[in-house]
Design a protein around this nucleic acid. Structure first.
Lengths: 245, 245
DNA sequence: CGAGGTGTTGAAAGTGCTCAAATGGCGTGG
DNA sequence: CCACGCCATTTGAGCACTTTCAACACCTCG
């Protein structure tokens, strides 16, 4: 189960690699290594040369920045299927640091391999550009969320994004052990998160038991969470428009 | 002054084109057309095929999305030197609509021309990837702003980004006529904007006369605006790290 | 002058934050 | 096995900032 063979299925779960033909995937796979990461380990820090990108296959990872006054700003919290640290520009530096917030596993790939393929393979270059465009659209959406959603809605939206598509009910999600990370990720304090989660539970009928979240009724959750937003779960336009602008 | 000749200097003022060699610039210039846009005109709407990109050479343009409840979310408000609608991915759609908020002028370029150059010219492709990376970093910064800055600081930060670099005092900025646009852009209501602007004036000594803003002392403004942020004006790290991640 | 758009101001309500204290799970050492 | 301490989470009370609703001032244009 841990041989190079199953890298294919792991990569198929990621946005960047999911639609690549197998022969191209195999070119990447020969350069990929798998690694276990213990809780607390730091993979890299902001400002370091961006040599590698990472694909999460297990666990949760925190992307963070440090502010001038020493506070930590959590840029994102990622789990299985997410990629981070990827860079197509030469000699670029990481924009943030990354730390494992619990024991996990990652695939490691040199950015130079990505860069080489972008240069040599027009189709892959096109995929990469779509990927970058899509990332930009998500960022715009994030901004909108911060502007128009209140705390309970932001949490609901965060949960919805963790739901596998296609399921309509009885989805079970496992959050990272330390929920205050999610609070930071969503731009709120731990206390606010706690209260907002209570409100969300009362409004949408979700069940919470420690780090386990059970969503009985997706549409009830999205009715509540998406009402203030410009697109409704599953945010179709994020997938349709391989965005621009 | 409106011949193709001065397109070069206009393009040199934009982040995407500023460092390109003249011979490459001229390839773009042959495809560029200039156009005047009257206040209120809509250039395109969200979801339309992203055929053209636009470079602002005069006036202010509003990038917006419509939320489900009919509200308008202002994604950005752009002026001279900014580019929007650019897309390197094929068959992509615009992520937002764009409207002229006062009489203005734009340069128009087919995205297919950009795409062609990306394919044919490795150096330009590299510039584009850096541009996209830089855009991503700015988005992360925007998120941070929304999270850590209060209303007066957000306005101050917005003004600072409009200041031409290199000047230290007596900078004069012209805002769009309708200031409530900036309020939306910064995620606050018009009334809050009005009050916050008063506070900003009291704290930093800037002068406001209608749409004209005079900044006597840049460092006084940045001391106030950047104190909560992870980087200080002019946000050096945005330029250093041709980012990744 | 009057109408409509834009900006300002006031008062009250809402939302999230700070500070402080209580709760509850979990591992360590006795 | 139990007591203890640690840490994340929860809860409460008060505060700061932003929004909401409403009224008014200002300016331009007809």
């Amino acid at each position: 189960m841990s041989g190079k063979a199953d890298y294919t299925s792991l990569l198929k779960k990621t946005e960047l690699f999911c639609e690549l033909p197998d022969d191209l995937l195999s070119k990447f796979i020969t350069h990929i290594t798998k690694k276990s990461v213990a809780k607390g380990n730091i993979l890299f820090l902001e400002g370091e040369l961006a040599s590698y990108c990472y694909i999460v296959t297990k666990g949760w990872f925190k992307l963070f920045n440090e502010t001038l006054d020493g506070t930590e700003a959590v840029v994102d919290v990622l789990t299985v299927g997410n990629i981070f640290g990827e860079s197509l520009a030469l000699n670029s530096k990481y924009n943030f640091g990354v730390q494992a917030v619990e024991d996990g596993e990652i695939l490691i790939l040199q950015n130079s391999v990505l860069q080489k393929q972008v240069k040599e393979n027009v189709e892959f270059a096109s995929v990469v550009l779509s990927f970058l465009d899509s990332g930009r659209k998500k960022q715009i959406k994030e901004m909108e969320h911060m502007a128009v959603q209140n705390a309970p809605q932001r949490i609901g939206c965060f949960l919805l994004r963790l739901c596998p598509l296609g399921n309509e009910s009885d989805v079970v999600i496992n959050l990272p052990y330390d929920k205050s990370l999610i609070a930071s990720r969503l731009g709120m304090k731990a206390e606010t998160f706690s209260r907002a989660l209570n409100k969300l539970r009362a409004e949408t009928g979700i069940l919470i038991d420690g780090s386990r979240v059970e969503i009985a009724n997706i549409s009830q959750l999205s009715d509540f969470s998406c009402s203030a937003c410009s697109s409704y779960y599953p945010c179709e336009d994020l997938k349709e428009n391989k965005g621009a602008g």
